[in-house]
Design a protein around this nucleic acid. Structure first.
Length: 408
RNA sequence: GUGGGUGUAGCUCAGUUGGUUAGAGCGCCGGUUUGUGGCACCGGAGGCCGAGGGUUCAAAUCCCUUCAUCCACCCCA
């Protein structure tokens, strides 16, 4: 009995659920390709240490959300909790960390051991892009454009929030300042002790109060950085992309610096982040590669799938039949049509329902056209094409004309 | 990991103070119509009432445990 259950937070996906997910994936792929990004597919399993060194040992993700286990040779592995670390690892592993600017996208399942709720599963799907080797704000703008394009195509309402974290140096200074500033508070959470910047978006009342009077990260940026951020904002204005600056926005993964951003939706309850990303200039070097700047984002496919309006599927031709002989012919006919025009959705009905029921089914399943094959059709070699969507008389067609009608 | 809500047919949900054979709508299969749709009518299949234990003459109903799911915290995409 127990062995027939799915693992918590990892539901079987079928029907409308998977329709919506497929739809989101399709739009993502189309958009990535239109920006000329190349696919990168890395393994679902990695050494756990990879994520400790990138996502950050002190982060919640690594502290309590990783599926980790030892394999048969006692290697400590984990199911990947996010996509960037694996891709960066792969760049280094394969010697791709050279000076050429590279643009990659990925798509696949990620795993986090969290308590499931709406918009939060233990196995979930992310798609993302990584733009490697360009340190300019143009690179940041490019990925925001990709993100914006996808959300527009999916007709999703969302708000873009930005923040600028500076570089390693300014971040470090700010962290030091915060550490000192917050030192008055007793029982500071560990994640704040290790990475004080996390206090920025803390919801703990004590920390919140104290933080309301703390210096902003802006005060630690040098002129160059302020200018970079201004450039980015200016370019977004020019492109007429709405945004707001949220100086408390920090990301849960330790490798971020420079520009960070999130797209938020009101339709998902507490899990309101549908897409998030930013710059991670130190990560490639930090993992042992060359010192290359990089920027990217990831989006939650399931989260987007949860809020899109699913379009009803248009199917093209329903081929019904009345007995076994005609079914054989119908099947051959369907094969010919699909072979010559593979964009058509053609159903060969295999059941024994009467003609009325078959047409009813064809109609309710959204088919545009239907034919029924029987003895009459086999004898006369003509097919009666019914238009189920428009009120037009049936067309009587010879097989050749019939195929032509479907552009075969 | 913490707090709360909910688990009954494929789906959405009724089910009285515990009472004998657990229901509806949609969907599915079949018929009215041995070959022509959108409608209607008739019939049928499908349930260990999430799982395990307990109380009772008797449990979908009460109690305990557990699992799943949803909401909030937390975290993030």
């Amino acid at each position: 009995m127990n062995d027939l259950k799915t693992i918590r937070g990892m539901p079987d996906l079928y029907g409308e659920n998977i329709e919506a997910i497929s739809m989101v994936e399709k739009i993502c792929l189309k958009t990535f390709k239109s920006f000329n990004y190349q696919e990168f597919r890395t393994p679902v399993l990695e050494n756990k240490s990879l994520f400790d060194r990138s996502v950050g040992e002190s982060s919640d993700i690594m502290q309590k959300e990783v599926y980790e286990f030892k394999d048969r040779k006692d290697e400590l592995l984990c199911l990947r909790p996010e996509g960037t670390a694996g891709l960066v690892r792969a760049l280094i592993t394969n010697g791709l960390d050279n000076d050429e600017i590279k643009k990659f996208y990925y798509l696949g399942p990620m795993f986090r051991y969290e308590r499931p709720q709406k918009g939060r599963k233990r196995q979930f799907f992310q798609a993302g892009v990584e733009l490697i080797g360009d340190e300019s704000s143009d690179a940041d703008i490019e990925i925001i454009l990709i993100a914006n394009t996808i959300l527009k195509k999916l007709n999703i309402k969302s708000k873009l929030q930005l923040n600028y974290l500076g570089d390693q140096e300014s971040l470090e200074k700010y962290n030091e300042y915060l550490k000192e500033y917050l030192s008055g508070i007793s029982d500071l959470p560990k994640y704040v002790m290790k990475n004080p910047i996390r206090a920025l978006d803390s919801k703990d009342e004590g920390i919140k109060n104290k933080m309301s009077k703390a210096k902003s990260i802006k005060d630690f940026l040098n002129e160059n950085q302020i200018e970079e951020f201004n450039k980015t904002k200016y370019k977004l204005d020019e492109l007429e992309i709405d945004y707001s600056v949220n100086s408390r926005l920090v990301r849960g993964l330790d490798y971020y610096n420079g520009l960070v951003f999130e797209f938020l939706s009101d339709d998902l309850g507490a899990q309101n982040a549908i897409l998030g990303g930013g710059r991670y200039d130190g990560l490639i070097k930090g993992l042992g590669g060359r010192d290359l700047p990089a920027t990217g984002f990831a989006l939650g496919i399931d989260r987007l799938a949860d809020i899109i309006e699913l379009l009803s599927i248009e199917r093209d031709l329903f081929i019904g039949c009345v007995d076994k002989k005609s079914r054989t012919y119908a099947q051959a006919l369907g094969y010919k049509i699909r072979k010559n025009n593979n964009s058509l959705i053609v159903e060969n009905y295999l059941g024994n329902a009467n003609v009325g029921k078959q047409l009813k089914k064809a109609d309710s399943q959204g088919f545009k056209f239907a034919i029924i094959v029987g003895q009459d059709e086999l004898k006369s070699k003509t097919l009666k094409l019914k238009n189920l969507r428009e009120d037009k008389p049936d067309l009587e067609l010879k097989e050749k004309d019939f195929l032509e009608h479907f552009e075969c």
